[in-house]
Design a protein around this nucleic acid. Structure first.
Length: 564
RNA sequence: UGGGGGAUCGUUCAAUGGUAGGACAACGGACUCUGACUCCGUGAAUCGAGGUUCAACUCCUCGUCCCCCAGCCA
């Protein structure tokens, strides 16, 4: 059962697992689980956990379960369950027939609670929520024992049965563990295990009016599923003694090991479910799947690939340090993946009309353009050329800045895969002074190579033929926040939302080959970035592209430094 | 502050008493019909003070700073 491959463990969790395998702690078994609560969409922080849990299971020939941790009906819904299932599968993981629900264990959990009462380890407490809070003590003061702590087992049993039977109002009683009100670990001060809550559960409906708390349900669910390693985030470290206490009192036959790791934080975004819900609720974004969101659904809609996300998760590592991972690493992983697989095309985002004065009116010729120059196996397509073209507005400057080697008055530039052209004139709008058209001449002998007189033309720009290109809408996405760590600020985090996180361009022109492109496919628009043909918003005759990530742009750096 | 965790290049992860290393970011260069990609190179860190040792990121002592816990949320 233990793997034979001798590659060293890559993190402290795998190290511990290998130690358990050596010592035969779980008979060599490895079983993990990913246990989301279906009260929101999964984000890239969850992706880290998914990759960890499923990755470990695969590596050690074990299995990873998908379990909905649905013990609090308020906020949970089928919509979220479906999104979670969809997202984990899209990421590339398979739980086979092991989709479980904590709510399926409600009856078993109830029986475990009864056992605890029978052995005098739990009691029904009739204090109000406020009173319980007051008597819990503080960080520095011990708590006080509840006056209901010493009720008889019979009375507790009867009361608990009545709680289940719906005899009491919400909040009238709770079931608490009888542990230690003066424990320095506040988690151990007689924690609540069951509360009365008349809420319709999306799966069990009104069958129950009492629901188990996380601490009680989670360890037992793990035990029921015979999980060996229950991997969770750092904030549950204080809860581990309780996790172990419950399983010890109940003398269950399976006692998993809880291991905690540091959750992912990503710069220029937020990964707190609560805050994400707020962004959706306050309509700062269009929904959970808004392409600016760090949710799996958002990244999918943006055009990120599962491979890129998985690779990112592998690279950030697993440790116990608080961290704020640079989002440029995620962007790097996306580019790295797309560089290999995205075919190159040309598209002009902000068109500037170019007339080639010495090119015959009505003439059209085609250039064969490789879909990926570095990989001839990806084929090529024909791109039409004619007298009137569009180039990018920013590829022309009337007064070119230093180190700029694109088009300007009297300057020459290479049209990608086409001729060298020279700017001979420009037309300005009489009112605004804005350049609306540029006139050039082309050099026919440069069609297949450099000019014979040896002159150097450094600039290469992309272009499309005015008459042959097709219109497109392009959405330029940028970072959601303007500062690296919006959560570190005391005030309202929405203050730091990036007002330019979305720019929609509606008069873009893309090469004709894109007219029949498959929705959901990804392209590199040469010199610009990677783009995703949005399958939700595109329709026959209407192309809508999302910018997945821009290309690295060293000119932007030069330009901004020249300005200083 | 009672308890629980954590401190290593700008960021992140490693080094498990024996040359502090990788990745991202930054910077410089080569290449280039993508200012992309690729390649080469540069700078950059052990929280502090003591101690043990031939040798300390690692072990010991004392500090400092950061995170988590006072939901009938997870």
């Amino acid at each position: 059962m233990a793997q034979t491959n001798s590659s060293p463990p890559s993190d402290f969790i795998r190290e511990m697992i290998e130690e358990h395998i050596r010592s035969n702690r779980f008979q060599g078994r490895v079983a993990t689980r990913f246990p989301p609560e279906p009260n929101g969409y999964l984000h890239v922080g969850h992706a880290k956990s998914i990759c960890l849990n499923f990755g470990i299971a695969a590596q050690y020939k074990g299995a990873c379960n998908l379990r909905m941790d649905d013990t609090d009906p308020s906020g949970e819904s089928l919509e979220y369950v479906e999104s979670i299932i969809n997202d984990v599968r899209w990421l590339g993981f398979d739980w086979e027939d092991r989709l479980f629900y904590a709510s399926d264990y409600f009856e078993q959990l109830y029986q475990f609670a009864v056992q605890l009462i029978e052995t005098g380890k739990a009691y029904v407490c009739s204090l109000s929520a406020d009173e319980i809070r007051e008597q819990r003590g503080t960080l520095t003061e011990p708590g006080k024992e509840s006056p209901y702590r010493n009720r008889s087992i019979e009375e507790n049993l009867a009361l608990f049965a009545q709680m289940r039977a719906g005899k009491f109002e919400d909040g009238a009683h709770v079931l608490r563990a009888k542990i230690d009100m003066v424990s320095p670990n506040i988690t151990m001060r007689d924690p609540v295990f069951y509360r009365i809550k008349r809420a319709t559960h999306y799966r069990t409906g009104t069958q129950w009016c009492i629901y188990p708390m996380y601490d009680f349900a989670h360890c037992l669910s793990d035990s029921i599923e015979k999980i060996t390693h229950s991997i969770c985030t750092l904030e549950f470290e204080n809860n581990r003694p309780l996790y172990d206490w419950i399983l010890d009192q109940l003398n269950v036959d399976y006692h998993p090991q809880q291991i905690e790791f540091a959750r992912l934080n990503l710069s220029y975004t937020i990964l707190s479910k609560r805050r994400l819900i707020e962004l959706v609720g306050r309509e700062h974004v269009t929904g959970w799947d808004d392409p600016r969101m760090p949710t799996i659904a958002g990244m999918r809609g943006r055009g990120y690939t599962p491979e890129a996300i998985r690779n990112f998760c592998a690279r950030i590592g697993v440790a116990k340090n608080d961290n704020l991972v640079d989002i440029s690493l995620l962007e790097h992983c996306v580019r790295e993946d797309l560089n290999e697989r995205a075919p190159r095309v040309m598209g002009v985002l902000r068109p500037l009309r170019v007339v080639i004065d010495n090119y015959p009116e009505g003439q059209v010729e085609e250039f064969e353009c490789p879909n990926r120059p570095q990989n001839p196996g990806m084929g090529s397509r024909m791109v039409p050329f004619s007298r009137v073209l569009y180039i990018e507005q920013e590829d022309f400057h009337e007064n070119p800045p230093k180190k700029y080697y694109r088009l300007g008055p009297g300057r020459e530039v290479r049209l990608r895969y086409s001729f060298i052209i020279k700017c001979v004139n420009m037309v300005k709008d009489k009112q605004t002074g804005e350049i609306v058209e540029v006139h050039c001449t082309y050099d026919p002998e440069t069609r297949n190579g450099p000019p014979s007189d040896g002159r150097k033309v450094e600039g290469v720009i992309h272009w499309v033929s005015a008459n042959h290109s097709v219109p497109a809408e392009v959405r330029l996405y940028d970072r959601l926040f303007q500062i690296a760590d919006p959560m570190a600020k005391e005030d309202d985090f929405t203050k730091y939302l990036n007002p330019r996180s979305l720019e929609t361009l509606t008069s873009c022109r893309v090469e004709s080959s894109l007219a029949g492109a498959l929705p959901g496919s990804r392209f590199q628009f040469e010199r610009l970035g990677y783009f995703y043909l949005d399958p939700k918003d595109s329709s026959p005759g209407k192309l809508v592209f999302n910018r997945i990530v821009p290309l690295r742009d060293s000119w932007a750096k030069v330009a901004s430094q020249e300005k200083k």
